[in-house]
Simulated scan of single mutants.
Amino acid sequence: MTEKEKSTIELEPQPQSRKETDHEKSLRIGLVGNYEDTEETRFLLTPEGCGLLTSSGITVLMETGAATDISFPDSSYSEFGAKIVSREEALKADVVLSYLPLRVNDIQKMNNGATLFTMMDQSMFEKNVVEALLEKGITAGCLDNMYSFNDEPVFANIVDEIDGRASVIYAQEFLSYVGGGKGVLLAGVAGLNPCEVLVIGDGTAAYSAAKAAMAAGAYVTLMNNDISALQVAKQCCGDSLNTVAIHPRVLFNKVKSADVILIAECTRPFEFPKNLSVAIKDSVYVLNFSETKPSLSVPRTVAMALSNVLVNFFSEMLIKGGVESMLASTSGVQAGIVCYRGKLVDKLVASYLGMTCVDIKVMLAATN
């Protein structure tokens, strides 16, 4: 080989091996089902939603039988690219999805430094659960505490809307003869007044319940202790909605005539008068959204609605380069994080448990 040939070879670009960066690796999502000893039926992802994730390069590991509550067999998910695995294997994914927070024994099976996304529940305020998350260095976030780009808690709004609409189904069933009620319709017919539905409070669940009751033909009144909120309710639900400010005497009279009472949280702090219960007539259906979740009866609808948001959520995560990059650049996602890399960053949880809280923005600034 001549010197000229040697120099030509040396100048030609040679293939070089390089390590694959974290965000170039396929993101693995573990999908686990609900605990059998709870009444929880809701689920986060449908087969179609799973298919959209797998088509974008995400690996979905689903626990066997995880979607039983929403009446989808494992085969429906495997047809869309999911791998059906044991619960233990699903818990070993980079990101684990569970409707309710995991229990300690499941948290301990997760990989150190993995990510857990759930919906907020009282179990997230249990010290042993939080300590298990911190010990494993898990980044844990509650989806319903996260905000979209327009500052809307989109996950929470979806579930609240379904709760509101389904509450009217509950009410009609209760009023029917089959449900043990008086055997009446919410809607009136020719010559008969419709049932009176009283909605007390503010927010998506209250507004959705009011709209659903009006659509069913009921006479609906919404009461709240904030005039501005009542104006918003009127704009949201239309002029057919009767809005009334809460005053003790007016509230007493409205409760006295109501056939259905649906209670959400009022805009301002409010305690119901102690003698209010005596005004409630017999066979009245009363539902408090803080105690009863009607969406439990329509879990497939919940899964279909949440899937639409989750697909966009993970698509954005891929575009931004993974969980860490998304957290660093998205304040709305930061708002839902409870634990980050072995530190408690949720002020409310920390205050309730008497534990130290760290500012997530400071941690993100130090690690990125």
Rank of each mutant, 00 (worst) to 15 (best):
residue 198 L to G: 08
residue 121 D to P: 04
residue 17 S to F: 12
residue 105 N to P: 05
residue 304 M to D: 11
residue 86 S to N: 09
residue 187 A to V: 00
residue 367 T to D: 14
residue 95 V to P: 06
residue 308 N to I: 00
residue 186 L to S: 06
residue 211 K to F: 04
residue 268 R to E: 10
residue 209 A to I: 02
residue 335 A to Q: 12
residue 357 C to K: 12
residue 275 N to F: 07
residue 335 A to W: 01
residue 49 G to C: 03
residue 305 A to G: 00
residue 91 L to T: 08
residue 195 C to V: 05
residue 98 S to D: 04
residue 229 A to C: 08
residue 250 V to Y: 11
residue 194 P to W: 10
residue 26 S to F: 08
residue 40 E to F: 06
residue 270 F to L: 09
residue 85 V to P: 02
residue 233 A to T: 01
residue 252 F to K: 10
residue 265 E to P: 01
residue 36 E to Y: 09
residue 219 Y to E: 11
residue 246 I to V: 07
residue 21 T to K: 15
residue 209 A to Q: 06
residue 181 G to A: 03
residue 203 G to T: 01
residue 32 V to C: 03
residue 304 M to I: 02
residue 328 A to G: 02
residue 209 A to W: 04
residue 235 Q to A: 10
residue 302 V to G: 03
residue 226 D to A: 13
residue 63 E to V: 04
residue 137 G to E: 01
residue 40 E to A: 09
residue 243 T to D: 12
residue 351 S to H: 05
residue 366 A to D: 15
residue 147 Y to C: 00
residue 352 Y to W: 03
residue 164 G to N: 07
residue 7 S to K: 14
residue 53 L to T: 02
residue 138 I to A: 12
residue 158 I to F: 00
residue 88 E to V: 02
residue 30 G to H: 12
residue 287 L to N: 15
residue 256 K to F: 06
residue 99 Y to R: 05
